[in-house]
Design a protein around this nucleic acid. Structure first.
Lengths: 207, 207
DNA sequence: GTCTATACGAAGATAGAC
DNA sequence: GTCTATCTTCGTATAGAC
């Protein structure tokens, strides 16, 4: 049982203050942005007296905790990295394998949206973390998918094309769909996720 | 001849203070964000005395000028709206028509990036403008393109598919490519714009 | 309409007792 | 490590002369 608000974790042990500060700062930064969040709010969220400088016993400044928060989240992304099912897991049906992969990617993108937004907002202050996040979110995904597509092309499961460019196009389409949906609070062109994925698969597999 | 910095416009007439404030605020908001920009900076950019409240003779608050700036930019987007060349303009070559259209869309997206970012940053304060921008940037584009695709499908120029879903997928791919490039300061998967567009065309037209 | 001067509040950060 | 209390800086906004 986990009582995050009370600062307790499984087993009833009180979470270290530093962790509580990171948890609270992360939530507040996501909800209000970095500039919109005050040290006082972070202290309150960490069950410290609001307005006391207790925060400063654990972090040197507001920017300091921003870096710590972002780095922790980027590490989590790294740890949770996963790819879609192998073709063999879906009875050799390439359409099913693609559908599962695209759905999973859209879910992942949605989950990562708060982090992406925060990093975007504070891009000037987050040079290194931003580079690493780009590598994690984009390049490694393209690499892994393009290798898979190349294998499928060899087997004749999908038409032959430049596998890296294909992987890039598909990833960009999914990124664009998710960002448009988040940005405008509705799917682009009123195209449902299902119709979007179906069309994407048709384009990849061919008629 | 236009001397924006000096507050002059064609003809040598001094631009009204209100316009100079809008120009300066727009530039500063793009460079530093809304929260990161001070009234004092806006005044200086408009050639008013820094720290004097002269700003307040023209706008009631910082939020007020934000709305005015965003609305002005959205109106400009609306005025500049344009679509790619007709099929007949390219000698009936659908690949050429698509290439020109995609290139133009990528250029447009790049030009609109500052506005999109600003609206994203201050989304809470910009409800109405945001809805309208979504309509302008996404839905109208999808509508216009899907009608065109439907006509091309009738003529047998491209394979038959759901034209609206196809237009959505393509627009999302371009949005994702541009946003990834801007976000990480490099194209995703190190795929050049040319290779990206070529692959996109191959997917649409078929082998 | 623009200036000088300033009131007011908010937020980051520190000092020192416990 | 946490508290009370406070310092300092900065930014919004206003008052009133010109």
């Amino acid at each position: 049982m986990s009582l995050v608000d009370g600062g307790l974790v499984e087993g009833g042990m009180a979470a270290p203050t530093r962790e509580r500060i990171l948890d609270g700062a992360w939530r507040l930064f996501v909800e209000q942005g970095f500039a919109g969040t005050t040290i006082t709010q972070i202290e309150a969220a960490a069950s410290l007296a609001a307005g006391s400088g207790s925060f400063y016993r654990h972090f040197r400044s507001k920017e300091d905790v921003l870096h710590a928060v972002v780095d922790r989240e980027v590490e989590r992304v790294d740890a949770e990295r996963n790819v879609g099912p192998e073709l063999s897991d879906t009875g050799g049906d390439v359409r099913v394998a693609l559908a599962m992969e695209f759905q999973q990617r859209l879910r992942n993108l949605q989950r990562l949206d708060p982090l992406v937004r925060l990093v975007q907002q504070e891009r000037e202050h987050l040079g290194g973390s931003r580079d690493y996040l780009g590598d994690l979110l984009v390049d490694r995904n393209v690499t892994v998918r393009s290798e898979r597509f190349a294998a499928w092309m060899e087997r004749g499961a999908i038409p032959k094309r430049d596998p890296e460019a294909l992987a890039t196009v598909l990833m960009c389409a999914l990124v664009g769909y998710r960002m448009s949906s988040d940005y405008f609070d509705r799917p682009p062109g009123d195209t449902s996720e299902e119709a979007f994925i179906t069309t994407l698969i048709d384009l990849v597999v061919g008629p």
